[in-house]
Amino acid sequence: MRVKALETLLTEKGLVDPAALDAIIDIYQNQVGPQNGALVVAKAWADPVFKARLLADATEVVAELGFYGRQGEHITVVENTLERHNVIVCTLCSCYPWPLLGIPPGWYKSDAYRARVVREPRAVLAEFGVVLPEGQAVRVWDSTAEMRYLVLPMRPEGTEGMSVEELAALVTRDAMVGTGLATVPQ
């Protein structure tokens, strides 16, 4: 009822267009989600030129795919390698690359994740089932209202010759946050 009250008041004042609110809800409830980011990752795995451009200027490259707008104004893609695994967080609130991943899951917004992944990333990753080799460093990227990150996971073994669509199916939301790895095909 508190939201309804605000909406009524602001609509009466001419500050809010109720149809625009419905459109926003529809986008984030039904249209935008991790499938967008998965397509970007799959294309980067399949096409070295695309990947190089993506790592150099992600905002521009994902916009070409139609993934732009709110919370996508400045996006940096960070690549996982054998030397370094990347994880994203927002210690301030819950900044997240909406055009590529949609609305963040509850755990991303929890105090436990936001505080602990910075302090003890390996312990947090282990709780997600990700145990990294000793020699692989972990870098935690703190998103802000100005800059958001997407992790480019490592391409799994045994995926040679797969199409972009098949590759995209291996890319989970957690893999693009860094709390998971890409799925290894059975």
Binding site: K4, L6, Y28
Partner: peptide
């Protein structure tokens, strides 16, 4: 789902829109 209650979605949309 991204919003577990309708009012979560409404609060979100209102904030973005304003």
């Amino acid at each position: 789902p991204p919003f577990s209650e309708p009012w979560h979605a409404q609060a979100f949309a209102l904030t973005v829109h304003l």
